[in-house]
Write a protein that binds this DNA or RNA. Sequence first.
DNA 1: CTGAAAGCGCTTACAG
DNA 2: CTGAAAGCGCTTACAG
Lengths: 347, 347
Amino acid sequence: MAVTIKDVARAAGLSIATVSKYINGGHVLDGNRVAIEQAIDGLGYRVNVVARGLKTRRTTTVGVLIPSIEQIFSTEIIAAVEKQLAEAGFTTIVCDCQLDADLESRKMEILLEKQVDGIIMMPFSGSAEPVQKAIDQGVPVVLIDRKIKNVSLDTILVDNDLLAHQAVSRLIQSGHRRIGIVLGPEDLYTSCKRFDGYAAACRDAGIPIDPSLIRHSDYQIAGGLAAFGALLDQPDRPTAIFTTNYETTFAAGLIINERGLSIPQDLSWIGFDSLSMAQIFKPRLTIVAQPVRHIGETAAKLILERMSGVGGREYEAREVILPGALIEGFSTGPIRVHADKIRCKAD
Amino acid sequence: MAVTIKDVARAAGLSIATVSKYINGGHVLDGNRVAIEQAIDGLGYRVNVVARGLKTRRTTTVGVLIPSIEQIFSTEIIAAVEKQLAEAGFTTIVCDCQLDADLESRKMEILLEKQVDGIIMMPFSGSAEPVQKAIDQGVPVVLIDRKIKNVSLDTILVDNDLLAHQAVSRLIQSGHRRIGIVLGPEDLYTSCKRFDGYAAACRDAGIPIDPSLIRHSDYQIAGGLAAFGALLDQPDRPTAIFTTNYETTFAAGLIINERGLSIPQDLSWIGFDSLSMAQIFKPRLTIVAQPVRHIGETAAKLILERMSGVGGREYEAREVILPGALIEGFSTGPIRVHADKIRCKAD
DNA sequence: CTGAAAGCGCTTACAG
DNA sequence: CTGAAAGCGCTTACAG
């Protein structure tokens, strides 16, 4: 059986209270300290954090709930979160809901059941229900990437409209006026913001918004294929396209490869996220890069602060907006006239 | 304060023992069952798994320890593991050691401290020390991807030599005889196996092994750049190259892009892992694909079996070798004569 | 500084 | 089937 604090106390000839005090950083007489240290080393004692957690009601564990663990955007954030939390002595439990709204709720319950001290969540469904459960139990929550309607919580966001504005302006500078955009679901926070930036850039340049250039998707590969394909196949097709998340950018890459399009000769293109994919693509892709590490670190620091209780149980929700960057590649260029190569499949 | 089993017992007019029995699936009188259910619903009771864990010495949690959470190979496996374990009612705690041998040991301790019921580990350092700690505590361990010397443990492997053999044979079929290979560290299990497959394929075709065509790396991007670059820059350079993990494959892609090489005209190339990168590359890459989902599921099932105690504490270590696949793209072709374009940078 | 005692919320033999 | 009691390993006031 595992060795307990009792064994240490016996070996050191002290009470468990004293040993406990020492373990938790309290002061004990020098002689006793030595005795305890020897006992611990000799016995190979290690605190049972489960027992401690029962008593202290803290598990030094934080739950991370994300839409899918297979999305690189989430992965990179998790890595940063985990590292930051580990340095503070916290363990991270990662749960994904596999793009399933029901699971999002279930996994939240599991996290709560595990008595996590705090939760970092990237909302998937947008429903307030999962997060409400945490609030009800008094567990602090920090949101990432998007807000949840009618819920006031700490949130780490990215300057989506500015970034989209920059990307679209970049295309406009190259002379494009028919610029397509592949967005996510209509009511999704990031999707709205990225559209706002697109619209603002067009407005600034005096370009009227053409609804046929705006395509919504599910922000997944399947939807990206459909949306990007539709943009290419329409009669007066765009000369440049902006895909606004990783999955739709990947989908665009697939189609471009399949149809044998030359970038930027046949089409100018700006993608989103995943620097590595951008670097591998021929020619190197121009993309909007979100500050993933920064997001993760910021979220981790904030949840640590909330868990420590600074500001009390009734704090005011904070909203942090982080800057991203437009990373230039070679996928944008001036407009060409001959664009009939595009519809190689449709024709 | 949270509602406990005591509150439920009081509300239901029963003892906590009876409530506990019901919660854990025991039989109680129908009337009592109703009373308990009502009390639970009314109070919003939820079992405190920390308290339960203290008593039962089981946490229904398994730890996953990997080299880096940012490596896509690991991510995909984790996703499969997590899903499989969740279905069995287990929670997954993912820890990575950030490619740091010391951290590998520390994180193992943390996992053990959290009283995980089992551990799935993809070894990084190859040292037996981290895993020995788990063994000492009687916590079952399932290894993934590679073995650890002098330790007999359940291990889920991939048929590395066969896969490498297939890949190299594919190149030989196209007429290549000077085939370069970018491996990992010399003593790494997978690296050795993949070299074995390479060597066997050459031997089968009567091609002598030329040491200058064999480059070891750290299996990371940095090492991949160095190794791949060195292969290209050497006097009698290979006409085809096989990069044997994701990072070195990615590195090769970077160099190919940077130098403006045309594949397969200037060079035939077969990569490893990451179907998505292969699909985005121009032309679509031929790669060796490991059965990531299969690996994850198999590891999860095995650890579940070990945790359940079937086979007893003293079981015989099992070794499972899973088949992968060579996925054909367009990155291999017949040899060309003019290869001077290659050294655009060096010249 | 040290120790005896209570208790965190649960499960588990053991009687009844 | 039900309940009283012990105990999992720890921390925490409270005396001393």
